[in-house]
Amino acid sequence: MLNKSVISILNKTKNVFQFRCFSSKVPSIPVQTLEKKETERIKLDTNTISLLERLSLVKCDTDEGVKVLEDSIAFANKILHINTDKIEPLYTVLENQNLTLREDKITQGNCQADILKNAVLKEEEYFVAPPGNIPLHEVQIESNKQTKQVKNEN
């Protein structure tokens, strides 16, 4: 057992002695970033915030949420100044590959149980959603009812 450990130590030191040429190929100073150092902070107006909230539906229109967003925008602003004239956008790295075309055959579906399996609320094989996007005059009637409801609850 002693022999084994001695040999392994020797192996290690052999490697160490072999390596230490202190290669100069690895850079010795950190690189300067191309990003802009200081960017002006954008202040977002309330219309934009409420538009975003309606488009995202994630309840981020709190003060903290807005601040995080503004930080993200400032972060993104750091690279807008870099010249990209005459550069085509790279939408996908597979841009030189042709889109696969599938034969027109029925190969999927017919799995109603699988489709409905993970739904929390169902009604006789339908998914259930609250009402939405209905003509305005109906919505007005609805909102009257709603306000009545809310008032009652209060």
Binding site: Q108, G109, N110, C111, Q112, D114, I115, L116, N118, E124, E125, Y126, F127
Partner: peptide, 13 residues
């Protein structure tokens, strides 16, 4: 049949 001509992709699984 309701929700039967639906693949997993169509239901955005």
């Amino acid at each position: 049949l309701v929700n039967n001509c639906v693949s997993l992709f169509d239901a955005a699984i």
